[in-house]
Write a protein that binds this DNA or RNA. Structure first.
Lengths: 143, 143
DNA sequence: CAGCAAGATGAGAACCGTTGTCAAATCCGT
DNA sequence: ACGGATTTGACAACGGTTCTCATCTTGCTG
């Protein structure tokens, strides 16, 4: 809304492959996304933007994230309480092992599942594969 | 993060066949759950109840499903649009291979992932393992 | 460089699934 | 059958997400 600082226009850079219109807000979202490798909720991303001085409307954040997700530039998943979480993809891919009672989370990864999902998908004629996997259990200190 | 309160579960432990209070409504919900093997949304379950003549309040359906989920009698997952989906567990375990553009879904299964998740979980000291896995891609007719 | 039309933004309302509230109904042990 | 505790159900409240629309930018054209 109030464009208070017409001189800001340099530090953040790096527009992903092809963004429809690389506006300041979209760049800001893309930029924040590149600062972490795990999944963050849309609202959290909005807060991060706010905290970093970039004033981007919540609706715009949602729109941008959706756009990025549609174009395959970010991965999306739903947390257990129904929030959408986003992560810039093409980065270290891992899954979460979550304790059902205390919530302790371990990041795990392994080529096994990656290979299996690709194989299964190919077997059924599916291309351009991605997947989400979450493991739940009771951790050592909770059992 | 929502850390669900595991109410008082000291005496009963886990009760597969024993429900806290087998009221008509709870039985109705349990009964509907047993009529399918895939995940259905809470609202869909409510509709099914309604359609089958059982008049159960929406709130009660939610409460019952949550209760069943807490006691481990049903599995829960979040669909891509944020709805909670429930399925009576201890049944044929499979995953979904979904086409990103037309939505065509194939049910897949395989011991590989099951083994892998168990191994990974055990490796980290987690017990009582469950997991959710969804594979996304573009199906043959859409690519 | 000014002007313009298409596209993007932001504030708030609208939506939708889910959860909380609380009086009335139901259940169970006595 | 009675009484206390639990459960139910209608509806309000909530939180996340999407929609609306007036205003502002962007990119292009002349």
């Amino acid at each position: 809304m109030t464009n208070t600082d017409p001189t800001t226009e340099s530090s953040t850079g790096r527009a992903p492959a092809a963004m429809a219109r690389p506006t300041k807000q979209r760049l800001a979202v893309a930029n924040v996304l590149s600062t972490f490798n795990d999944f963050r909720s849309a609202q959290e991303i909005h807060s991060l933007l706010d905290a970093s001085g970039e004033k981007v409307g919540l609706a715009t954040v949602y729109r941008t994230l959706q756009m990025l997700a549609d174009s395959g530039e970010v991965d999306v998943l739903r947390t257990e309480d129904g929030e959408a979480a986003y992560r810039h993809c093409s980065d270290s891919h891992h899954h979460h092992l979550v304790c059902r009672s205390c919530g302790a989370t371990v990041e795990v990864e392994g080529p096994t599942v990656e290979r299996w999902t690709k194989a299964i998908a190919a077997e059924h004629g599916y291309a351009d594969i991605s997947h989400t996997l979450e493991i739940f259990g009771t951790c050592a200190s909770c059992s």
